[in-house]
Every structure is written in C-alpha cells, then in structure tokens.
Amino acid sequence: MKTAIDIFSGAGGLSIGAEMAGIQIHTAIENNKHAAETFKHNHPSTKVICNDITKVKSKELPKNPFILFGGPPCQGFSISNTKTRNTDNKNNSLFFEFIRLVDETKPKWFVFENVEGFTSFNNGKVLKELESKFNSLGYKVEHKVLTASDYGVPQNRNRFFMVGNNQGITYDFPEKAQKRVTVKQAISDLPKLTNGDNIDKLPYKKGRCSNYAKLMRTNSKESSQNHLSRNREYVIERYKHISIGENWKAIPPELMENYSNTSNCHSGIYRRLHPEKPSVVIANYRKNMLIHPYQNRGLSIREAARIQSFPDDFIFKGSLSHIQQQIGNAVPPLLAKAIFDKIIKVDNEYKK
C-alpha cells in the first residue's frame, strides 16, 4: 500500500485526490481545529494531528512514506522572511517546516503546492532556493503552474505545484483533459434553494445529469449540506441587476452608496457565474458575493464544493463561515488526483 503524509492539510482536498488515485493517507497535520475535524470525519482511519506544525516531531510520523504533500501558507514567502530565515518568525518557519519534514521522514515522493504567484516571490529567488534545498536532500524536482479547469474541475483556478522524488525519476505533469466542465454541468442537478436556506438533506433534481454530476454523486443518494448565507434584502436587490457573467459594475450606483469608493472594488465582487463556462475562483465565495447563475442568491456549501470537485459524500464540519473558508482554501481534489495518478504511473514504470 502506498502511504502518505498530508501536512497543512486543511479540509483535505489533496488527500481526497490522493485517495482517488489509490494512496492511503497515514497521517495528516492541520492546526485549524475546524478543518482538522472535517479531515477526521472524512478520513476516519487517518491519524490527524491538530497542532502547530513546528511542534510536530518526526517520530510521530511514518518513516519513508511513499509520498508527503501539502501547501504551506503563502505568507511565509515574503522577501524579508526569506532573506532573514528567522525561525522566530512564524510565517517564515512554515516554509522551512515542509523542507524539515521531507528531510526527516524521507518520502519517496513529495508534492509542494502553493499560490500561482509563488514563482515570482522575490523575483524567483524563493523558488530557486526551494529547488536548491530539495536537490541538496537528494530530490529531483519539476514544477509548473496548473489550471484546475484543464483537469476536469469546473473552475479556472491556477495553482503552483512542485513534484520531487529521490529515485532520479523525471516527472512530467499530466496531460490536459479534452473538454472543460461548465458550471451548469457541475451544479444543475442540485436542488433549488432560496436566500438563507439551511437544509441538510434534499433530493437531487429529477432528469438527466452530466457525467461530472454522476461522478460527484457516486456514493450519495441525495444532496447534503444545502446551506447558504442569508443576504440582506438590499444585497438581493443588487443581485437582480447582474446578468450572467457580469459583476458589481452592473449594479446601479444608487444601490452601492454604502461603498465609500467603488473604484476599489475587485472585479470578482458580485460576480454571477456563467453557466456555460468553468467558474471563476471559489476563494471565500461568501465574502466575494458570488452569485448563482440563475437564482438571485449566493452559493450553497454543496454547490461550492461541487465547483471545487469535492464528492457529494464529503461532509464539512464547523460553522457556515468556517466551512466556506475551508472550501475556498482547498486544492480541488480532481486536480490533485491528476497529479497523483501521474506520479503512480511514472513510479510503476520506473520499477519495470
């Protein structure tokens, strides 16, 4: 059995993708108690360590696992932190914790995940330093920015990945999928909801559904966690003015008077999702006020999870706001699966 350690695990997007590829998650490390609770619920056989990673010792982890993966919070890659390497600086230390645990557990493979902009931190010096560190530990590395919608995820989300191994194997990133999955294909079979609904179980809509929806529904007979934030009436009124694909600029100025300066509004605010395209990034979709393609409301937990490619039997724990953040922070499982599938393929070929 191919075993894994997931560090900075969050709710477990990378781990779901790894499990889809046939990897067993031995241990996960996550400091946020709500995300750790979500992880434990969905991976009952996994050892979940809810603690500051700087306090986790390698003796608590399996030695020589098949793979170690995770995405350190990106605050640790500021110019000053990288220059000083001050381990008293918590954000900076998280960067080196990944390196430390690779060094101490010596996995055959690792996957380091981060924001798209990772490649340009400190004019690329951080990336070069990371490569150098792993090379010195005996790892051959490859890196690339991937777009989730190229790998079956109904979302245009770019993430940086570095893949390394200590066998001298050259890793080529997976080929792109032939067709992209749209928002309509992703969520049109989910139940109709109204502003503020908080309904745990509802039947799927009757009729045909997309292959993507069938995949998400594999282990589920109904839609769960149909919960969404209750927006105030003036917010719903704003939604009514926004057509498919439009954002806050479509809202009449008199309805935006509580904004002191609308020129500071981000283009992603008040965006109505386009049903015939992959979604914009599902970050914290409540704060961004992302709008359902056809209904004048925000997205439910299950709709956002679908757009991130979490299967319908995946259950999130914590308050609604904590769950919304967990979903937004996650690596899309189907994107992760594509990476892990390719790792297993090249690893098996190397053994022959």
Rank of each mutant, 00 (worst) to 15 (best):
E222T: 09
S149W: 10
R217L: 02
N158E: 14
K214Y: 01
H143S: 15
K179Y: 13
D150L: 02
L215T: 07
F173H: 04
K144N: 13
K205I: 08
A213Y: 00
Q155P: 07
G164F: 07
C209D: 04
P174C: 09
N219E: 08
I199E: 06
G207T: 00
F160V: 10
E222N: 12
Q155Y: 12
Y204L: 13
D197N: 14
N195C: 03
K176M: 08
C209L: 10
K144M: 14
T147Q: 14
L146G: 07
N219A: 00
L146C: 08
L146F: 01
E175G: 01
K206C: 00
D150E: 14
C209G: 00
Q178K: 15
R217C: 01
N198Y: 15
D150P: 07
V183Q: 12
Y151Q: 04
V145H: 06
F160Y: 15
T182E: 06
V153Y: 08
P154N: 10
K192P: 05
R180W: 05
Q155T: 08
S210M: 06
F173T: 08
N166E: 13
K144S: 11
G207H: 04
E175Y: 01
G152L: 07
C209K: 11
Q178H: 10
G164A: 10
Q185C: 08
P174Q: 08
L202A: 11
K205F: 02
G164T: 08
S188G: 01
L193N: 03
R180M: 15
V181R: 00
S149Q: 13
K205W: 00
A148Q: 11
M216G: 01
Y171W: 13
Y212W: 04
Y171P: 05
K221Y: 07
